[in-house]
Amino acid sequence: MTQHILLIEDDARLAEMVQDYLGASGFSVSIAPTGQQGLDLQKRNRFDAILLDIMLPDIDGLEVCRVLRATDQTPILMLTAKGEPMDRIIGLELGADDYLPKPFEPRELLARLKAILRRGPVEPDRQILRFGRLEIDGSAMEARIDGRACNLTAHQFQLLEILASRAGRVLSREMIMDLLKGESLAAFDRSIDVHVSRIRAEIEDDPNKPRRLITVRGAGYVFARAQD
């Protein structure tokens, strides 16, 4: 089965060279010349690995890595100009699996790519988040109040988990949409507000006076750290 690689690289000549070399080695390679195009492609397709340049014309590659890692565990090999040590350190801290300084030999790129593919994606630990009487169980995809399961759709649970895992941080609607992908993104394109209302109906004692999932006017939503 052919493995599909996403290459996010703005250098057209380098991208074409990598595509040809990996293609001759049995891989299928899709090229995105900007960070945003790369993120858009990743939302619509399943890739086995991502080759990510740090120096991109729109979004910094490190930021692209951060956004990807918020919801996705596809192996990432970062391409760093001149092998800047700080870029390498930050990239690995953000969740990249490996890095390769430019200029590089195609054979080394192939070897490192095969190495991260052998390791495969690492599933994140989805611990139970607890906020007083509310438990959010990522493994079971279930929210519970006093042990009673809340009636949430899978998409609504994902939205709740995104907010609760960043408790105390205001998330704009645009940030929330960036953290959602695939079918979930389509499910929320009509109105995040409607889904928030339905979540509140399940987790709040008084949905009209929410204490957990709070609207920050003009900014977005924040999941409160306060306990019951």
Rank of each mutant, 00 (worst) to 15 (best):
M1N: 06
T2K: 12
H4Y: 06
I5H: 09
L7H: 13
R13G: 12
V18L: 10
D20G: 06
D20M: 09
L22Q: 09
L22C: 08
G23I: 08
V29R: 01
V29G: 09
T34K: 10
L41H: 13
Q42T: 06
N45L: 10
R46N: 15
R46Q: 15
D48E: 14
A49Y: 02
M55C: 06
M55N: 11
L56E: 03
I59A: 08
D60R: 09
D60V: 02
G61E: 03
L62M: 11
L62W: 02
E63I: 10
L68Y: 05
T71G: 12
I76Y: 07
L77M: 11
L77I: 07
A81Q: 09
A81W: 04
E84H: 09
E84R: 14
P85N: 00
P85S: 07
P85G: 08
D87V: 00
L92M: 13
D98Y: 02
Y99I: 02
P101R: 04
P101A: 01
E105H: 11
P106H: 03
R107M: 10
E108M: 08
L110P: 10
R112G: 11
L113G: 00
R118V: 05
P124E: 05
D125Y: 09
E135P: 06
I136P: 10
S139K: 13
M141W: 00
D146V: 02
R148H: 13
H155K: 06
Q158A: 13
L159C: 02
L160I: 08
E161C: 05
E161D: 12
I162E: 06
L163M: 13
A164P: 07
R166G: 12
A167S: 15
R169H: 10
R173S: 10
E174I: 01
M177V: 07
D178E: 14
L180W: 00
E183P: 02
L185I: 01
L185S: 11
A187V: 04
S191K: 08
S191Y: 03
S191R: 07
V194K: 11
I199L: 04
A201T: 06
R212S: 11
G218P: 11
A219T: 03
A219I: 01
G220S: 09
A226E: 15
Q227V: 15
D228N: 13
